[in-house]
Write a protein that binds this DNA or RNA. Structure first.
Lengths: 146, 146
DNA sequence: CTCGGTGTTTTGATTTATTCAAAACAACCC
DNA sequence: GGGTTGTTTTGAATAAATCAAAACACCGAG
């Protein structure tokens, strides 16, 4: 257990270094705070760090999230009506399901077949680099709540 | 010319009434301010109204945009990194091309073939009602600017 | 036509999410 | 270990939007 924690920290350190970023406690703590499948906003990350590394300032959280996002170690999404959210899952082009009632976010793998969403009908002269798909609906809990 | 202006106003009035909204000067002015193909934020709308109906407050603009958006007379989009934008084109499920450098927005008709983007690989129990696709890239001007 | 109820707008303050700037600090190469 | 550079802290400021209460205007009933 202690071994696996040490290992996770070491892996995180290695990923930071590989990205050309210095290894610092706030960065390790942020990487540790966001579990796979979660989508956390800056405030939620800050609150989690207030348990694991209470000296961390809110601005440091913004700085870390910005650095990790820019380095590709976290992915940032901004669903309409919600503050920016950060997730662990990177490197694939997965999409998101957002509950229009409670804001809950779930991942979905790319849409049916090949990524057709990368091909709009006309590009208006734009050179594309990403297609982002957000599905809006009601999550199971909000369906149950009527 | 005066006739066409009168007609546009009358059409806008009819659409407001049909939506169950009262017909007011600020609402007519907002509908008049947003031309087809444009994507304006609340501040841009407010600035346009400061010419055509200068007594309108910023909060009234927010109120009008909210009411018209809720009634389906305007569509609201919120690309990441940008304030909410409002457009005229409603009732079709078109998508958007956003320049990641300057923020310029262009409309695109739905992606190739049938709307495949309405079918994620797994819905995680969500009941879907909308799929929103945002394409990110560089607009022609920003390509030219290097 | 005018009166009254309801919905809208104004006025002014407030909140939320985020960014800026400068000083203190810490990681890491030598 | 010591210096440079990047990071974090501290504190203030901004942008976008929302809230609340009072003034007002639309529009249907009479």
């Amino acid at each position: 257990m202690a071994t696996s924690i040490r290992t996770a920290r070491d892996e995180a350190s290695a990923r930071l270094r590989a990205a050309g970023l210095k290894v610092t406690e706030p960065r390790l703590a942020v990487l540790d705070a966001i579990a796979p499948g979660e989508h956390l906003d800056a405030d939620e990350v800050f609150q989690r760090l207030s348990r694991t590394l209470p000296s961390t300032s809110r601005q440091a959280v913004y700085g870390v999230l910005g650095a990790l996002g820019g380095a590709g170690l976290l992915r940032r999404i901004e669903p309409a009506g919600s503050p920016a959210l950060y997730e662990n899952r990177i490197g694939d082009n997965h999409h998101h399901l957002v509950c229009s009632s409670c804001g809950k976010v779930a991942d979905v793998d790319c849409v049916v077949g090949e990524p057709p969403c990368l091909t709009p009908s006309a590009t208006n002269g734009f050179v594309l680099h990403t297609a982002e798909v957000t599905f809006w609906g009601l999550c199971p809990d909000c369906q149950a709540a009527g």
